[in-house]
Simulated scan of single mutants.
Amino acid sequence: MSGLTIIELPRSLAESALAHLKQAGRDGLEGVALWAGERDGNTFRIRRTIIPEQDATRTEQGLLYVVPGAELRRLNQELYEAGLTLVAQIHSHPTSAYHSDTDDAYPIVTVLGGVSVVVPYFGRKGINLTTWEVYRLQTGRHWAHLSSFEKTALLHLVDDTPRRPFRWYWPWR
């Protein structure tokens, strides 16, 4: 994912990920979703939101989610067979968004240039890049925090909702 300058995220796929994060949040738990798609030069087009099997818990140190190894293997095989690549992970926090030490140490996306999005307040504020924190995996397994300008330059929300055809309605009919 190194060299990517644009990641196109269809609104419907962002909404499906957020719906999962909100549902987990209703139970007071973090949730995680993944985005996969295809690379075309310096642009990556997200084609699928994946909600992996996950175990979310509450500990004395805070909230935690775990995706079992068998599920990660299954997803890897499924993506390979579909010709898709994992580009981003998105997960929620109960309050402010930031990359925790656990997020740094145990990412699902491990490819250089991959993206990790952290959504505050269990996603209750909806699709709002200004409140989401975005990180990018750099050399040495370091997650670099993207500035507001960098994240909006990288992540492009694409409106993919179907439009109704325009119809004229004449008052004399």
Rank of each mutant, 00 (worst) to 15 (best):
H142C: 06
H145M: 00
V119S: 06
V117G: 00
E8R: 11
G83Q: 03
Y135G: 00
A56D: 07
Y169S: 09
D27W: 09
R39C: 06
E81Y: 09
N42Y: 07
R11V: 15
E8H: 11
D160I: 13
M1F: 09
R141S: 14
F44N: 04
Y169G: 07
E81K: 10
S12E: 05
G41D: 06
A105G: 03
L13C: 04
A82K: 07
P68V: 08
Y98D: 05
E150V: 01
R47N: 11
E53F: 14
F44P: 04
I127Y: 03
A19R: 13
G123R: 08
R11Q: 15
G3L: 14
L75V: 11
P94F: 03
E133M: 03
S147R: 04
H93Q: 01
R163Y: 08
L4Q: 02
N128G: 11
L86H: 05
L63C: 09
L157C: 09
E133W: 01
Q89N: 15
H93T: 01
E60T: 05
E81I: 08
G123N: 03
P165Q: 12
L146F: 02
V134L: 00
L75F: 03
F166W: 10
V32D: 10
G114I: 00
I7Q: 02
F122Y: 15
L86Q: 02
F44K: 02
G114S: 02
T43R: 14
A144G: 04
S12W: 10
T139F: 05
V87C: 10
R58F: 12
R58H: 11
A97Q: 01
F44H: 02
T152E: 11
R48V: 15
A105P: 01
L154G: 00
Y106L: 14
A105R: 13
L112P: 04
T43M: 06
G114V: 00
H20F: 12
H142E: 14
R124H: 09
D104T: 15
K151R: 09
I127P: 08
P68M: 06
Q77M: 10
V66K: 11
D159C: 06
H145S: 01
K22C: 11
F44A: 04
H91Y: 04
I108N: 01
L154V: 00
E38M: 08
T139E: 10
L75E: 12
D101I: 06
G126K: 03
V158E: 13
T57K: 15
A17T: 07
A36Q: 05
P107G: 03
N128R: 12
R74M: 02
T152I: 12
E60F: 15
A153K: 15
L129C: 05
K125V: 07
L84Y: 11
H156G: 04
W132K: 00
D40Q: 09
G28D: 09
L13K: 15
T49V: 13
I50P: 05
A153P: 08
A17K: 06
A24T: 11
R47E: 13
S116V: 00
A88M: 09
S148F: 09
R173V: 07
P120V: 07
R164Y: 10
E133N: 08
M1V: 12
A19S: 13
G83P: 06
V87G: 02
G123K: 02
H91A: 08
Y98T: 07
W170N: 14
